[in-house]
Amino acid sequence: MKNVRFWVVLWMAAWGLTSPAGAQELSATEIVRRADEKMRGSESSIGEVKMTIVRPTWTRDMQLKTWVKGTEYALILVTAPARERGTAFLKRGNEIWNWQPSIDRVVKLPPSMMSQSWMGSDFTNDDLVKESSMVEDFEHRLLGREEVGGRLCYQIELTPRPDAAVVWGKILTWIDRQDFVQMKAEFYDEDGWLVNTMVTTRAGEMGGKVIPIVMEVIPADKPGHKTVMEQLSIEFDKPIPDDFFSIQNMKRLRL
């Protein structure tokens, strides 16, 4: 089943932001914490996302509308491609439902589906779902300052704490000094080999905040492969009541 891709996207979509902080001298941990808060999102967001898988011989696009509240609630509506248009997903806590309008059917998905990575993209489960562990599961060391994508960034090395369940040997991250946008991250395995690079190719203001608008994930060992996520629109902190995230509304979402 391909549904997993939407969870990836959901978490991406949830990477909205909190308020930018002042740029005094901060500890490496504090910088990561602020970037992490930005990635994990604000109280709520409503947006549209386009995702493109790029391979040497083909590309495929998908577009989604997303309604997200915290980490507990999400509704996702597929608006493209035509084959999957109208399919919707509801997440409440640990539960996920899938709506297939053509056959008037709600399917409850097994929990194992949510915790998998989407194999088609270059995002991994650990990149996405466990984003919050960037703060708690790692030791942080400020390596220096470097410009990435026209923005001056803090370069920080993250090494996993001995007791943390982390698949990476280390992560290098570049966090914008002014807006705490993660402009780049390199994920290394335990043998020190680069696995994935995540790059923010366009950051800018959307929905009143500076956010990564276009991000790419590039696997190190697969030339010509990447996954591009583009935020088409987003609104932050528009109040969404908890009961918006219902099966009834999953069925009623419109293109």
């Binding site: 509506l77 084959r83 109208g86 053509s102 009834q248 009623r252 419109r254």
Partner: peptide
């Protein structure tokens, strides 16, 4: 799992929201 389809019903929310 993902089938083409049409959407049902307008978007008004539960209750008064």
């Amino acid at each position: 799992v993902l089938l083409l389809g049409l959407l049902l019903g307008p978007v008004p929310l539960v209750g008064s929201a």
